[in-house]
Amino acid sequence: MHQTIDSTGSAPHLRGSPRSGLRRVIRLIAILTSIALVGGGAWYLLLFLVTRTDSGSAAIDKSVRVVEVTIDSGDVRIDVAGQGEKTELHKKLTKSLRSPDEKIEHDGDTLRITTTCGDGMGECGSDYSLTVQAGTRIKVNTRLGDVSVTGVRASVEGRTRIGSVRVEHVIGDRIVAASETGAVTLKDVDFDTAEATSKMGAIQVDEIEPFKKLKAVSKMGDVELHLPSSAGPFAVDAQTELGDRTVEVAVDSSSGTSVEARTKIGDVTVRND
């Protein structure tokens, strides 16, 4: 094949059209995207096929006066058994490529529930719902999930890393409700000392009886306390670095009833019911 020489004496450059190069790039991107979508779809289908949930229940012995629940992932709800109702444990275990490792122990007057998931891929969780006798002391700790305790007449400690903590209709010497990321609520509670804390979440305390010490601290979230109008004055330490501060209760720094309400980012409100 002969090339035609132009007037300058040089042969013309042979090169492809810019549009053809762009089309090749687009086709390559489309192919890679399709592979990713197919692979991702197959992975989620696999997880769907191997994931299952098992439910179960068991009676709680009447001798139990302390319940301790420590789990990796799942919600925990504890209520008081009504008249004529049985004290029971209900559970829902979710497993896929990982399975919850559950241990339930009855030691004297203490019921211990411990569930771990370990490292790996896929769903793994354990939700528990318990009905207990009114005088049962409660201690709950979950890394991922909500904690709810209602109606007991004993001390309560509820903690979670990611989730909310709610303690309601409880009478106990000491109440601890703590979340690293989530709201914390104490409502209609009677205590000597209470601690409600969150690193990132609102704190609300409402409908409470006269007490000795109340601590409500958040790093990022509003703190709202409604103190009993029948009590006071209070030794109040109310602070916020970025937000509004409102204190509408009788204050006396020498009072034996102390209130600590603090947040770094958010509003702080302390007022009577």
Rank of each mutant, 00 (worst) to 15 (best):
I138F: 06
H169A: 05
Q133H: 13
T193E: 14
E105K: 15
A183H: 06
V147N: 06
D146A: 10
V236W: 08
I203R: 03
K139G: 12
R166W: 09
K187L: 06
G151E: 05
D206G: 02
H226G: 09
K219W: 10
A194C: 06
D237H: 14
D107K: 12
I171N: 10
V149Y: 01
V132L: 07
A183S: 13
K212M: 04
R161L: 07
K199W: 03
I113C: 12
G172Y: 01
V147F: 00
D146I: 01
V176E: 04
P233R: 12
R161D: 11
T181K: 12
N141E: 15
S198H: 00
R112A: 13
R112V: 10
G108Q: 04
P233W: 12
E105L: 02
V149K: 05
G151C: 13
A154N: 11
R153A: 14
K95A: 14
D107M: 07
S155M: 06
E209V: 05
A238E: 05
I113F: 05
V223M: 03
N141Q: 08
I203L: 10
C117L: 06
D188C: 03
D101V: 14
V223C: 07
D107F: 11
V170I: 11
E207A: 11
V140H: 04
V223N: 01
P228W: 08
E102F: 12
H169F: 14
I175T: 08
E224S: 13
G151P: 03
S126K: 03
S230Y: 08
K187S: 13
R159N: 14
R112Q: 14
R166Y: 06
E207G: 14
D188Y: 05
N141S: 14
A134F: 06
T160Q: 05
V236E: 01
V236I: 07
A154T: 02
D127P: 01
L144Y: 10
M200C: 09
K213N: 09
L130K: 03
E168I: 11
R98P: 02
E102V: 15
T181E: 11
S230L: 13
P210L: 11
L144I: 12
P210H: 05
K139I: 14
R137V: 02
K215N: 15
H106I: 13
T136L: 10
V189W: 05
V223A: 01
S230I: 13
D192V: 10
D101M: 14
A202H: 09
R137N: 09
G172N: 03
G120M: 01
V132T: 12
M200G: 11
D109M: 05
V132A: 00
G158A: 08
S198Q: 03
L111Y: 10
H226C: 10
K199G: 15
G201D: 00
G135A: 08
V147W: 00
L186G: 02
V140W: 01
E168R: 09
T136F: 04
R143A: 10
C117D: 09
E105M: 09
S155T: 11
T185M: 11
R112K: 15
S164P: 04
E123P: 12
V140N: 04
G172K: 00
I208L: 13
N141V: 13
L111N: 04
